[in-house]
């Protein structure tokens, strides 16, 4: 069984869990994701891997409670079990196979937004451990919604915090901070953006403007996560690609973000209805 060994709330709606899943932990690499099914009647929910420990046999997931299924995950307590945890799925980040010389020559900058900050952590950690230079720009609406700031500070060279309301760090968007750093003369070799789809869209436009290559990690809807259903299909450079097996990371210049944003909302109506029912059930229980 997939036992929840540790649970903590990072913000009122974002939860971090350390879960026992030895086979997944042994095989996981930065950039990959896994699928959790909270219980017998639950959906299969794709989540990025926020950390993994092959010796302890654990994986770390960070979930924001937005729908019935993510709420079901976050409602679980320590010592509870998930019905299923399967993975790692998707391709590992391109840099995992870099040579020693290549790492030494790289200066990565990560743009991290919202819960997307969590999967940036294992990537930054991996790059730093392999000798690359790593900067991270974390963005959130407000100070109380920032996550992973202390953890991230330990695995990067420079950490920049941005808030939309100016309650902490740079007052503005992560893209504005990136532009500022580049204009100050920082020579990045690669941009990686992980966060809400709209943030990745503008990160890609900004990177293009600055002439920097960019990788984005797409959190599409999925059912099986092994290439079987095609729910996660996305247009990349005019071709249909399956994010579950050919991604989740793609060249940000080539992704049709408007289509991807629309496809993410495929079940918005059904999800809203389900959420109302779920809240109503909770109400009855109390």
């Amino acid at each position: 069984m997939f036992e929840i060994l540790k649970k903590e709330m990072l913000t009122p709606s974002v939860c971090r869990m350390v879960v026992s899943a030895p086979l997944v932990a042994r095989a996981a690499k930065p950039g990959q994701f896994l699928i959790v099914r909270p219980d017998e009647k639950g959906e299969r929910i794709p989540l990025t891997i926020s950390d993994f420990d092959s010796e302890k046999g654990t994986v770390t997931i960070v979930t924001q409670s937005i729908g019935v299924s993510s709420a079901k995950i976050n409602d679980k307590a320590e010592r509870d079990c998930f019905a299923d945890v399967v993975g790692p799925l998707g391709l590992e980040s391109e840099f995992v196979s870099f040579s020693q010389e290549r790492y030494a020559a790289e200066h990565y900058v990560f743009l991290a937004g919202g819960v997307g900050t969590a999967p940036v952590y294992p990537q930054a950690k991996w790059l730093k451990e392999h000798g690359a230079k790593v900067d991270v720009i974390i963005g959130a609406r407000s100070e109380n919604l920032l996550i992973y700031t202390e953890e991230m500070a330990r695995v990067c060279d420079n950490l920049y915090i941005c808030t939309d309301d100016g309650s902490k760090g740079f007052h503005g968007l992560v893209t504005a901070k990136l532009k500022e750093l580049v204009s100050e003369g920082v020579k990045f070799t690669m941009v990686v953006a992980i966060g809400p789809m709209v943030m990745m869209k503008f990160a890609s436009l900004t990177a293009k403007e600055l002439g920097l290559p960019i990788t984005v990690s797409l959190n599409m809807l999925m059912v099986d996560g092994t290439g079987m259903c095609g729910a996660c299909r996305v247009s990349v450079g005019g071709k249909i690609r399956f994010a579950c097996v050919e991604g989740p990371e793609f060249d940000g210049y080539l992704v049709d973000f408007d289509e991807a944003i629309r496809r993410q909302k495929q079940y918005a109506v059904e999800e809203k209805e389900a959420m109302e029912k779920h809240v109503c059930k909770i109400g009855r229980g109390r």
Binding site: V223, M228, G230, S235, Q266
Partner: peptide
């Protein structure tokens, strides 16, 4: 138009 919302593979529909 194949990527419009409401178009899916039979695999997805049947798996659901």
């Amino acid at each position: 138009g194949e990527n419009l919302n409401g178009v899916c593979s039979a695999n997805e529909f049947l798996t659901r």
